[in-house]
Design a protein around this nucleic acid. Structure first.
Lengths: 123, 123
DNA sequence: CTTGACCCTCACACGGATGTCAAGTTTTAG
DNA sequence: CTAAAACTTGACATCCGTGTGAGGGTCAAG
């Protein structure tokens, strides 16, 4: 598939896909004219990148972590520590987010008591 | 308390506190010489701002939402929708983060099987 | 009054993923 | 063959909370 197809399949802009490649996160082969071609597995790869990005890992961190998915050989103890520390970070982030959610939920609830126009936006 | 005290109490830099004020999120009175003074309630206020910021609300969104905490009068139906939509966003973010955490946790686990040097970094 | 800690207001810089524009090339449909 | 659609590289712009530095003012203690 070409970059437009991958973009459509993942929701990532072509710009972002080129950026991922530039950062070493995503590989592509080139056609004779220089256009990128991706295997269908690239869709999952991009999804994974997007997940990690939205979890607050930057591209360098992802680069550290991603290879261990595809390449068992490079699993160093250092990498385990890296993974664990990222995991801790994400866990903490989830905790924080839970607290914030409770704040917001409390406000919504409090509001609904005053003006009962239920919208049923259940969690 | 002065800005240095509030900074120490909240962990937010003085720069950030001034920024919050500039964005209308945080009020202060000024001494004769122009220095900021805060009531002790400002500590909670700043904590709240920090929570919302880290939940991905930008200062404009917080400005929309924060007043309803201190001022009951301005609770419009529009505000309820705003709150609900931010809540939905945060909930979705939590979901995504859970998935990402599982990915990372899976990697850590997978790794530990191969190289059993337990570090006991429990979640 | 003097000194040192603290504070003031600009104003510029950054990080990092993404948007966007320009000028040129490749691919595909007709 | 030709025109349109899709792609290429390169460069600059944007967002936005925060860092940082300059140049100067304030405040409390000695």
């Amino acid at each position: 598939m070409r970059i437009g197809d991958l973009s459509a399949a993942t929701g990532a802009s072509a710009r972002s896909l080129r950026y991922y490649e530039e950062q070493g996160l995503l590989a592509s082969t080139r056609s004779g004219g220089g256009q990128r071609h991706y295997p269908s597995t690239a869709v999952d790869r991009v999804s994974l990148i997007q997940s990690l990005l939205s979890a607050g890992l930057n591209s360098a961190a992802i680069l550290d972590v991603l290879p261990c998915i595809s390449n068992e050989a490079i699993r160093t103890p250092w990498l385990a520590d890296r993974l664990t520390s990222e995991l801790d970070r994400v866990n903490k982030q989830i905790e924080d987010l839970h607290r914030t959610r409770d704040i917001l939920a409390g406000l919504v609830e409090e509001y609904r008591v005053d003006q009962p126009r239920s919208q049923e936006t259940a969690s």
